[in-house]
Write a protein that binds this DNA or RNA. Sequence first.
RNA 1: GCGCCUGUAGCUCAGUGGAUAGAGCGCUUGCCUCCGGAGCAAGAGGUCACAGGUUCGAAUCCUGUCAGGCGCGCCA
Length: 553
Amino acid sequence: MIRELLADRLAHALEAAVAAGDLPPTEAGAIHVERARHEAHGDFASNVAMVLAKSARRRPLDIAQALSSRLETRDDVAEISVAAPGFLNIRVSDAFLRRSLATILTEGREHGRSQVGAGEKVLIEYVSANPTGPLHVGHGRWAVLGSALAATMTWVGYGVSQEFYINDAGNQLQNLGKSLMYRMEGRALPEDASEFYGGAYVAQAAAAARDQLGDLSALDEDARIRRLADFGRDWFLAAQDGTLTRLGTQFDRWVSERTLHEAGAVETMLRSMQASGAVVRRDGALWLTSAEHGDTEDRVVVRADGRPTYLAADMAYHADKFARGHDRLLNIWGADHHGYVARMRAAVACMGRNPDQLEVVLGQLVKLFREGQEVRMSKRTGDMVTLDEVLDEVGRDATRWFLVARSADSTIDFDLDLARQESSDNPVYYVQYAHARICSIMRAAAEAGYLPGSWDGVDLQSFDAPEERALALWLAGFTDEVAGAALAREPHRLTRYATDLAQRYHAFYTQCRVIDAAHPERTVTRLALCAATRQVLAILLESLLGIAAPEAM
RNA sequence: GCGCCUGUAGCUCAGUGGAUAGAGCGCUUGCCUCCGGAGCAAGAGGUCACAGGUUCGAAUCCUGUCAGGCGCGCCA
């Protein structure tokens, strides 16, 4: 946590300057240290002098000067300088960079962990698709985002659980049962078939139902629909599970909406909310008084005919999440559900919880392109490209990378032809190539006897090429980077960091001969850079993003 | 009509109020006697949609306008 270290050091310098009378006492807010963007500005920069200028009633340059002269450099700050209009520019020492290299090597595959999550118990719920069809690429985005976020938050000290909520109650499943029945029995669809599911996957499920269930003609129509709805649920659930496994996303629990109803969880929740006055009867229905908690209007939870709405079950589910001891609920939803956020937060408030304990990450939608044309998806006609097909065409690694590399706020234009054709120029291969390249060097170094058995206590010599230092500096920022990505819930930052790391490695590799019999000590130092880079790349790709870190490709 | 998201290089996108706005792809020009050329170096390419405002400082914050996406059910 190098930026934290420097910020602390600056805070001490500020205290010392105030104590010595160089500066008037002032409201010291959080001191901000950032990575310098230009090499001339050192490695890190702080704007603290400019921030303090107004309250201290002093010129920023004077404040910067005072802090600069009071900063303890010890052996980790090589240089501190002041630049107009009041920047403090800090260059860290090579000794510091060598120490952080040693830390990476000693910690190995556990490097970059921290405790910024403070053990908070977080339940991440994502995908939660209806079991009425195959997953599409949008589900893939939530799956990759959710699993990468889960891994990243776990890495920085959150207690993370991952759940998939199965929407296996209500009309949609009923409609699936009907669709399968019509298909099986070869019946023409009714005039208004808008609620029916169509397409090849319904035909496949219907064929499987015929094989496995046999003749259903002894049952009446309602029973046939129920039977087929159940079959369809299990059929598509298994298919979705299989697709997610291919994609490399694993859930801790799958929670069934139907089970919540059957176990009485919905009823219990409704009774307690009626008792507290959060749920009231009006016009024959039961309403959640969500308008009192920030929603635009109250919402029906039980219809006049007695059937609970989707919201009722979802509220019971969220109450159950809290009851199981999760402090924070993090839901990943498609942007098409954003209108649902206010009512769910209101529901959380009605449970007597702080609505901020519910956090919703809204992901914008994924648009698929094939041959330059957008592929429109329709469940009804079944005209869709499934996530399985994308995995067939593009592969797991590129699919995950492509879906996680962009900010959740940004829609993704997923061009299938481009992803397939240009796969060798895809950034994911660029990063994987760096890893494979290092593995190759390490193999050669091991054969030649340069690789130490353990990195503990190995002496590293000072850097003599700028590319070595640039690489070491970038590696030293990894822990900060992971913490930042987790706290902001933005795993896409990791792909950016990984690309930059690979870029710095390739530049180093081109410029610096690693294995060199004439310079055995320098060889060991450069191998340490290689080993640390490989380690961090492997953590990023495999442990955090769920992407392979190949030893050869 | 109201709400949320987006608008940055030819294309796809990064960019935690800071200094000269970046990456990949595409384009131009160089670089393999030697550890992996799926690589490196250099170059061309920008009214950060537009107009105001806040600030020492705005792509970033606020207001308005324009354009695109998604919502606004006793569907889920």
